[in-house]
């Protein structure tokens, strides 16, 4: 059984925000909601790195643990999804999530939180697959079509990878071997990089 994961290679991400745009367009997410964002650390300083962040589809998801109405579920592919018909917009998942994935449209009365919205790994939601209801609430269901999330598919530098954790691990291992350096530690040693990467 596959376990779907995202991986963002900090040595490759150029902070183009293509993934953010692709996600917004593919899923038609509401104004003010960004399922994916690119964070740049040490902007303009030596050692600057960018990472594209969205829901990481945790195996032991903190959001699911704290949800007072238990609206989260994990698919057979290891994708963490939630049911917007059950969500009450309390925001607990946002407090608990390490990655800041849960988003809340704030157009409800008294500026209270609306129903939570987050990255679905382009796998829709609990509604009938490819129904208009599913699309309105959760966005595209590319996984059902045998496709990967559009953010990763659109990534120009192939920094953002999405897919089975084992496959991603292999790709990443090859890259590290070819680069001869570990990420976030020694920096990139391009001179030592292999040619078959």
């Amino acid at each position: 059984m596959a376990r779907m994961k995202f991986y963002c290679d900090a040595e490759r991400c150029i902070e183009c925000n293509g993934c953010v745009t692709a996600c917004k367009n593919e899923n038609e997410v509401p104004w003010g909601v960004n399922r994916r964002r690119v964070v740049t650390i040490k902007d303009g300083e030596p050692g600057e790195r960018s990472l594209s962040v969205a829901c990481m589809h945790c195996s032991d998801a903190p959001c699911a643990a704290v949800c007072p109405v238990d609206c989260f579920y994990t698919t057979n592919d290891g994708i963490v999804l939630h049911d917007k018909d059950i969500c009450i917009g309390c925001g607990y998942c946002f407090y608990a999530c390490p990655f800041g994935a849960p988003q809340f449209p704030s157009d409800a009365a008294f500026a209270s939180r609306g129903k939570m919205d987050k990255c679905t790994f382009c796998a829709g939601g609990p509604q009938v697959t490819h129904s208009s209801e599913e699309y309105t609430k959760y966005g595209a269901n590319r996984v059902a079509e045998g496709k990967l999330p559009l953010c990763a598919e659109m990534c120009a530098t192939k920094a953002l990878l999405a897919g089975d954790a084992d496959v991603l691990a292999d790709i990443y291992r090859k890259r590290v071997v070819n680069r001869g350096a570990s990420v976030m530690n020694w920096g990139v040693q391009y001179k030592k990089a292999g040619i078959d990467g």
């Binding site: 376990r3 994961k5 995202f6 991986y7 963002c8 900090a10 925000n17 953010v20 003010g32 960004n34 964002r37 690119v38 964070v39 740049t40 650390i41 040490k42 902007d43 990472l51 990481m56 195996s59 390490p98 988003q103 954790a165 084992d166 991603l168 691990a169 990443y172 291992r173 570990s182 990420v183 976030m184 530690n185």
Partner: peptide, 27 residues
């Protein structure tokens, strides 16, 4: 089943690295 990103995120989290960065996304 180890997530390939585990080391990366552990680096970010545990080495007292800077977690505050810049982003184009307002929120």
């Amino acid at each position: 089943l180890e997530h390939p990103a585990i080391n990366l995120w552990n680096d970010v989290r545990q080495r007292n690295g800077r977690t505050q960065g810049l982003t184009q996304v307002q929120g």
